[in-house]
Design a protein around this nucleic acid. Structure first.
Lengths: 235, 235
DNA sequence: AGCACGCTTCGGCGAGCGCCGCAACGTCCC
DNA sequence: GGGACGTTGCGGCGCTCGCCGAAGCGTGCT
């Protein structure tokens, strides 16, 4: 059946400012308890609970109870993909405070975009791998044989990323850099490897990541990526 | 600057049922006058005018006055792409009448998805070209050298589709068939060629297309695509 | 067991939105 | 120029939605 699509539920789910903030926070792939989301959006816990219910009903967010907390996360990679595409059409959300401005600066350096690395770090990695012939210079950043070996060499679980239902490689246009970087199943595998190896660590709160000294050294020696690319800009 | 995205305006724009209908109607790439859209959605002209204003303000739709009519269309390919991605998350819109059900049947056969062919016809063409090695069996359906010659041979303006700002090839997951078909700049060029050659004609109203006898013959002899693939199912 | 904590549900308030009819404006046609 | 037509702008009505505070429920800690 080729019916029309009903955009009203998804649209309505995204229409409220608080829910837009929630979705933004969850786009780094993290799972967060309801209270943290409420605090971040500046609404009461009860209001946040209602909003989260709307997002769950719309199929954008899923909920998993853990002890007395209830953790929320995006429902899946397809949701993240759709939101990315939608984000390319929208304007920037207003910066509400100096703290958020600082936070924005840090995010520009390195962050997670659902489950893959983004920001200057994500773009720099992708550029380096394209230059080395690990990824094809195409719309999909297809993985080459050389790249398969190379990524395996740094401990990326390439086999798990290939052949699944999810697209192996996908180019995600960075909101900051307006340039493509590696996403898809392989992007997720790379992100997982960087976390597991301790090359980056997630910021305690927020969606940013910090590149560790080990990670900086690794980036420089392996691909000549300069340190200030992966770090927040000075000031 | 890596700021958060404000999904509220786009979300709100899609939240109203009438606006969802408008967007669905425009997703075939046609430009339609305000009155036709109003009639299709079952709202008064004044209401439709307000809704269209909201869609224009949100950047989803653009308006071009022609005489005493004002024609509306999607703002661009990126909007169509985002809506496709979003459509993959949403459910079907309820079928409101038998006439709409018949219409849905016809759309399943062949239709335009913004500017490229979709439905069983779009999927069959893509399958045939992948099988012949004209398109790579990848996530992007990348154009091969053989395919470039082949498409040029049937009059597709390949050169115009390559090297532009827009992605040359892109896989668009069909809502009907749940299978990928050719989209992007090349998909648009193919669609334009099919129209220009008279292999398909747009239905007088609605988003469907009808395959002409010439087109049927061409599809069968060139790629062995059976006629009932491109036609509405019987009944 | 008792308490503290996180989260959800419920009632109620105010604001915003979708809908229409009517009037006004510009364009096309006779 | 006069009339018909397509479209937009403006009040007004009703409904929904976002927001909160208070109460209820389940979990974890002591």
């Amino acid at each position: 059946m080729a019916r029309d699509r009903d955009f009203t539920t998804v649209g309505r789910a995204l229409a409220a400012p608080a829910r837009s903030v929630f979705v933004n926070l969850l786009m780094d792939g993290t799972t967060r308890p309801a209270g943290e989301l409420a605090h971040a959006a500046g609404v009461s816990p009860s209001t946040a609970s209602e909003h989260l219910g709307v997002l769950v009903d719309a199929g954008l967010v899923r909920c998993e109870p853990r002890g007395r907390h209830r953790y929320y996360a995006l429902a899946g990679p397809d949701v993240a993909t759709a939101l990315e595409a939608l984000g390319g059409l929208t304007g920037d959300a207003p910066v509400t405070s100096l703290r958020r401005s600082r936070e924005a600066e840090r995010l520009a350096g390195a962050r997670f975009c659902y489950d893959h690395l983004a920001g200057r770090l994500g773009v720099a990695l992708t550029d380096a791998w394209v230059e080395r012939g690990w990824l094809a210079d195409s719309d999909t950043l297809a993985l080459t044989a050389v790249g398969s070996d190379g990524l395996r060499g740094i401990g990326v679980d390439v086999d798990a990323a290939v052949g699944g239902r999810r697209a192996t490689t996908r180019a995600c246009t960075d909101w900051t850099e307006r340039r493509p970087h590696l996403a898809g199943a392989l992007g997720a595998a790379v992100g997982a490897r960087f976390l597991r190896a301790g090359w980056v660590v997630r910021a305690p709160a927020g969606r940013g990541v910090r590149v560790t000294p080990t990670g900086l050294d690794m980036l420089r020696t392996a691909w000549g990526i300069d340190s200030d690319i992966a770090l927040p800009t000075a000031g």
